[in-house]
């Protein structure tokens, strides 16, 4: 049982103590209510979060804590019911479906637990896809896709189908795909959830390099404390509220809480 983390209100806390760094993700009093008839589900209840550019942050929480909902909003796949979400200075809550799509295309790179590659397209075709929707010309696209694959060490697998690759390789293709449009934020949803320990380490190493070398803003949603320890800052959600927002041991913070134990130890109120 780890030390009980200091439970803080949803204050704005930044682990990078340089106030001059511009804020990439800004959430204010964010609510999301799923209204399915009689029983409305209040999935997220008033979140205030600032994520500065270049921060490497993890969001933790047990299932039902509202982290998937937060991920959908952060990924501009969904709009908040109340409150605001500014991504790189753009207010997403007022945008149409197509404007959100353009925003995702330009600003966000997605990495999923189950990779979500197009199964009947080759690796290079998968990596090209975001550029197709960004309107990049064919020749330029192919070159950029191959460069991105090279970056994740899969240049020799460019013409393989996902089914011909291991899980780790598929996830690397997905990382390459998330990077080709030079996004402002990389959103990873349980990126190692379907991988063994060794492969997980490889993937986390790539993400770490993207953070340290390229200064990319990376948000990882996970329930694995081991994954969260790679990041600089961790936000813990429970019942749609932030119950902890702290530095990780790597940056001199307390130990990362085990969310599964946490959800058991704190009784429902």
């Amino acid at each position: 049982m780890p030390d009980a983390p200091p439970i803080q209100p949803s204050d704005i806390v930044s682990t990078i103590d340089d106030a001059s760094v511009p804020i990439t993700v800004k959430l204010r009093d964010l609510h999301k209510i799923y209204d399915s008839g009689a029983n409305a589900v209040h999935a997220v209840r008033g979140l205030n979060v600032d994520i500065p550019e270049g921060q490497y942050i993890s969001i933790m929480g047990a299932s039902g804590s509202g982290k998937s909902t937060l991920l959908n909003v952060l990924g501009a796949l969904d709009v908040p019911s109340k409150g605001t979400y500014h991504l790189a200075g753009k207010l997403t809550s007022k945008q149409t479906r197509d404007e959100l799509a353009a925003l995702r295309n330009e600003y966000i790179g997605f990495i999923f637990q189950n990779f979500n590659l197009l199964t009947r397209s080759t690796a290079v075709e998968n990596v090209e896809l975001p550029m197709v929707y960004a309107g990049v010309p064919t020749r330029k696209r192919r070159a950029a896709a191959l460069a991105a694959l090279d970056k994740v060490g899969l240049a020799d697998r460019a013409n393989h189908l996902p089914s011909e690759m291991s899980g780790g390789q598929q996830q690397r293709v997905a990382i390459a795909r998330s990077l080709v449009n030079t996004p402002r934020v990389l959103l990873a949803d349980e990126p190692t959830g379907n991988l063994d320990t060794h492969t997980s380490g490889e993937i986390m190493k790539i993400l770490d390099e993207l953070h340290t070398k390229d200064g990319l803003t990376i948000i990882i949603v996970t329930h694995d404390p081991g994954v969260a320890e790679f990041t600089e800052r961790v936000i813990v959600l429970r019942d749609g509220r932030i119950i902890a927002d702290q530095k990780t041991p790597r940056c001199g913070g307390p130990a990362v809480p085990d969310v599964r134990a946490l959800s058991l130890s704190v009784p429902e109120n």
């Binding site: 990924g75 796949l77 479906r97 197509d98 799509a101 353009a102 995702r104 295309n105 330009e106 997605f110 979500n116 590659l117 197009l118 199964t119 896809l129 975001p130 929707y133 960004a134 795909r177 449009n181």
Partner: peptide, 14 residues
């Protein structure tokens, strides 16, 4: 699923 992936990485409804 494919449509979802395409939408997530920025395909517009159009």
């Amino acid at each position: 699923r494919e449509i979802g992936i395409r939408m997530a990485i920025g395909a517009s409804t159009k």
